[in-house]
Design a protein around this nucleic acid. Structure first.
Lengths: 196, 196, 196, 196
DNA sequence: GATTAAACGAGACGGTACGTCGGGTCTTGAA
DNA sequence: TTCAAGACCCGACGTACCGTCTCGTTTAATC
């Protein structure tokens, strides 16, 4: 007769455990920020031992990247309405929404962190893939004659996203309603008067 | 002939010591990057005891900020040629040059680092001051009629600087010759065709 | 022939590591004294990392106490020959021998050090236990009628041990051969003449 | 004409300053204990700069010894009533009173502290002088025939003082009323029955 | 259904860096 | 000259995390 047949630690493993850890990571990221998201804390929150985390994810970075990686893709649409401006506004508003979330900010901060080897290798390819969303829209606009023939799609994409990144990473200024649209307008129309 | 004529520890103090430490910090930053710039390493390089560093600078962050703070201001010009485009190109090229230097990159990374209390308080004011350089140029352009009357100077400044910041912090893409000019042109003229 | 057959750091852990550290502590205590027994020095001598020491022993004090605590008990006999004087002499000679050793002196000094929180709590209980060794002998002597009926065992124990402690802690006078016996004789017989 | 004729910091110097520092030391000793009596704290309490303290007293120890040294001598009487027991009780009660005071305890702890060079040299002579107070009384008792001819005055003195020292330094047990007398009685009469 | 290999819990250990405290020295300037 | 002021050296303490390693135990797949 056992006195303590107890709650049974419910030893999670395999895929369920993986998901539990990733979820705990995202939660902690939102709650405590990048710095507060210790491997130990994640493990505790997930009800899992620290060693088990290190078994799956070689380093803390890898864990964080894995936890944040998927979210971004799902959140970003690939609009194609036939109107450059409209497409860009939709895309950038989605980007702004994502960046305004704790996870978005965390991902950006993580990506910006130097001394992150796991990040270093993936740096260019990763952002390349993300910026391409915007480039494609621009390129279609050029093809449709909506934009200048010698427009550099990549540069436009960077010019659109740059200010948002900067606000999140550096100034901390809010990504207010309408900001995305104003940036798109500025980039498409320019600041110089058009009326001849 | 004296046998021991020089081991004198050359006990630097006061302002000279301060400068020695800051210089060592900047050097280390350039050589080893943010992560490699340990307080102990700085102290060793400056020929100063670690605790002496902590006396002046409460934390590592403060030291780094102090070491990087001045450089930026000196490096940035405030051109006023009477031509918006020319002014902006000059400014942005200076910014690009600075960001391309190890110190510039380090400063940016430091500024982008979360969990940096010393940074947090100064965040907005600091970048405010820096962005104002660009805003002023834009404002003068508006007054001269070179730019649209409803132009938002701040937004323009952010749109110009954003891509540079993003390249340094995120993608790691090079700040190549002519980049500054292309960004200025895009932002002033827009991507949409002007010729009817 | 193996080229590298032994560089293995010999990562001691668990009980063996504990013993290694305690042994190193005792050795250092004997060699360098209380002040020279740094945590870092102990760790180095034990071939263990400093942080590992702090993991087990919250503070330096705790380490020292742990290192010295056991020795004392082992060294002290609990004689019961049926003769008070003989029992006391045996006990006190053992005490004297122990106190004459570097470890004994170190333990005493550690116990006497104020501002030692870890010590403070255990102070009375610890010495209580040690003094009881003497008290028991005295009590048996009273029961056997060898000693006055109203003898205070505790006071006798303190009176016997006090001079030894004082020599070690304060005057630094040697605990010479025969000292224990002379103290016992004095305490049992008194300085006042017995012959009427 | 001076603009700031101000409160004049009342820069104490010479003898007055010396006394102020010593007084502050004793106060701190009583209030905070040995460990809390930092040179910096003393200086602050005395309204004097730390450097000035170090100018007069080479080390912290010297300061403490100087601060405590005088008190002891003044406090100890040298009774000579013609009766050994009475003399010894008077002396030991004075000793007990002194040791019960914060200063007394502090002095004892200081004397017991190892790694105290300034103390080391003076150790034996210092206690020699103090124990002599008791020895003299005993010696006179022997001469008067009150005590055994072969009584060792020094041993008696140590046996009387030892328990008090031990309580203060080690066990922390209180020096209650009557303790001195009981120790004297025990040492003079012995624990062994006298009645045939 | 018993066995076995992989996955997990548990926890100690190595290692790096940060920040703190206190004792003691040295320099400068003012009283 | 003496002292205030304060910066400096030096050594030690204690803490937080990251990542590694060992061992016992559970779980799940295999025979």
């Amino acid at each position: 007769m056992t006195i303590e047949n107890s709650p049974a630690p419910l030893r999670r493993r395999g895929e369920p455990m993986r998901r539990a850890v990733l979820a705990a990571t995202v939660d902690l990221l939102a709650a405590e920020g990048l710095g507060g998201t210790t491997v130990a804390a994640v493990a505790r929150a997930a009800g899992v031992h620290e060693t088990s985390v290190y078994r799956r994810w070689k380093t803390r970075e890898n864990l964080l990247l894995d936890a944040l990686g998927s979210h971004a893709d799902d959140a970003l649409p690939a609009p194609d309405t036939g109107d450059v401006r409209q497409d860009l506004v939709q895309l950038m508003e989605a980007v702004a929404d994502y960046l305004a979330s704790p996870q978005g900010a965390a991902l950006l901060h993580l990506g910006a962190s130097p001394d992150a080897e796991a990040v270093e290798a993936e740096r260019l390819p990763y952002w390349d893939a993300r910026l391409r969303r915007g480039e494609d829209i621009v390129r279609r606009g050029v093809e449709r004659g909506e934009l200048d023939r010698d427009t550099d799609p990549r540069l436009v994409a960077e010019t659109l996203a740059g200010p948002l990144f900067a606000r999140v990473l550096l100034t901390g200024a809010p990504l207010d309603e309408g900001l995305a649209r104003r940036i798109v307008d500025l980039t498409l129309d320019g600041a110089r008067p058009r009326t001849g």
